[in-house]
């Protein structure tokens, strides 16, 4: 006798495992009072350069550290180490994105005392598709877009813009050379993510970065005030 096929309802979130680890991480970060910022973009948009500048400028005033994901090399960590901040490379191998468990392992391996940190930055693998679905336990997700990439990038990757909190338009020192249309870019960002905060800056000459750093400082203060209640 061959039984009738039947449908059994299950309802399971496929990313449940990652979401659970991310939730635990977020609670841990919050308890330690560290504000966690992740960076996503296409390869070459300028995440490492931007992070290097951020770490260098923040370090005299804040305790900072960084994790950096890459498919194969440790080059980015070596570049970031110039900032004198503690940096840990996560090599993902064939995986095109970071997952919460990798962040957890990296933090545990380094034995960083999170309560001694103000900011922890996480550079994701260069990819505008895969990282969108993976919560890393961060407080703020920043998506970078360089002026050389074309104004319509947000329209091509609405999902990642939707998963991010803030957009950075970087390499603004090259804007004129490539006839970058800042207005069109902002319009496209607002089309896929109404209300998204946008900072335009250059990691090379530092222009515009102060405003972003001020924003980070305010968010850190807000998050600590909320935790103290």
């Amino acid at each position: 006798m061959s039984p009738e096929p039947r449908l059994v309802e299950v309802r399971k979130n496929v990313l449940k495992q990652n979401d659970m680890v991310a939730r635990a991480l977020r609670a841990r970060f919050r308890a330690a009072g560290v504000f966690v910022v992740s960076l996503v973009s296409s390869p070459g948009s300028g995440k490492t350069a931007f992070l290097e500048k951020t770490l260098t400028l923040l370090r005299p005033h804040y305790r900072v550290a960084a994790l950096v994901g890459d498919l194969a090399t440790e080059n980015d960590a070596a570049r970031l180490a110039c900032s004198q901040a503690p940096v840990k490379q996560i090599i993902t191998g064939t995986l095109c994105h970071l997952e919460a468990a990798m962040v957890q392992n990296a933090v545990d391996e380094e034995e960083w005392d999170l309560s001694q940190l103000d900011f922890l930055f996480i550079e994701n693998v260069g990819n505008l598709v895969c990282p969108s679905a993976y919560d890393l336990g961060e407080d703020l997700r920043v998506v970078l877009l360089s002026v050389t990439e074309g104004e319509d990038k947000p329209l091509k990757y609405p999902t990642i813009f939707n998963s991010a909190d803030v957009a950075i338009v970087t390499k603004s020192d090259l804007a004129e050379a490539v006839q970058f249309d800042s207005e069109a870019t902002r319009r496209n960002i607002q089309a896929v993510r109404p209300g998204m905060l946008v900072f335009q800056l250059s990691a090379k000459n530092g222009q515009g970065i102060g405003e972003y750093l001020g924003f980070l400082a305010a968010r850190l203060a807000e998050s600590r005030a909320a935790a103290a209640v």
Binding site: R6, V10, N13, N162, Q190
Partner: peptide, 27 residues
């Protein structure tokens, strides 16, 4: 991202991020 009726922009998503196993067909 805006309302199809009145055109108001919004990024409040109520559905569309799902990635769920919902049922199994067994025999």
């Amino acid at each position: 991202f805006c309302c199809g009726e009145c055109g108001t922009p919004t990024s409040e998503i109520v559905q569309g991020r799902e990635l769920e196993v919902v049922a199994l067909e067994t025999q």
